[in-house]
Amino acid sequence: MVRDITLGQYMPGHSLIHQMDARMKTVLLLAYIVFIFLCKNFISLLIMALFSLLVIFMTKISFMKYLKSLRVIMVVILLTGVMNIFYGSGTVLWQWWELKITTGGLINAAFVVVRIAMLMMVSSVLTYTTSPTDLTDGLERLMKPLTIFHVKVHEIAMMMTIALRFIPVLLEETDKIMNAQKARGADMESGHLVKRVKALIPVLIPLFVSAFRRAGDLATAMECRCYNGGKNRTRMKVLHLSGKDSGAAAVCVLLFGSVIFSNLYFPAVI
């Protein structure tokens, strides 16, 4: 079912990671993504992987949830993994026509799979432990300097909040409309591509109509609650950096340092 997708779902909790500032988490995640692609050998990759598992463990959210976040992109992971096996140099282990499996290819594949999986799971750490409001609030503040370039930072953040709120609502609605059209004999499971795309029209039109109706209602509701853009707005939860955030930053600096160190000290395999 469509609604099984866990899309950036927040899971309330009180772990150390939950308590961190959304801005710090976002910045550290970005740095993490850079460094996971900087890993050049197994030792640095192992350091990053162990760290990732530690962070996941610290969130006190079931590991199953993280595996579930992988399920959505499983196809992408497998596909890039398999493609990488045949792409690379080194000792040829197996050959058939032009297709060659080499040691280099296997190493490439392993790196790619681990990197994407870690990337997805650690990104989930951010979305699972940070409430959507905190997340967008954090982004709004991080992007604040952009206002001098006339970027509508508050509006972008508000749009993200609303999008995060309504994605599950619209997914459920899609499910309902699909069922209703199936009950009228719509065939969405068979046929060639053009036919399948055409079969989506009876789902998409009602979905758009409903999205516009909801948008109209929401605008009214926001007006009733005195929404006036970002002007003079206060927040219930004020983001503030604490000792926990400095601690986390220090740990990450150490981590990234050790990645650089192992890259320099041990030979690169990729």
Partner: peptide, 16 residues
């Protein structure tokens, strides 16, 4: 599904 017709809740939202 043709023999057992089903009208869902708020069926007007399926008009297209």
């Amino acid at each position: 599904r043709f023999k057992v017709g089903m009208v869902f809740q708020y069926p007007e939202y399926q008009l297209f």
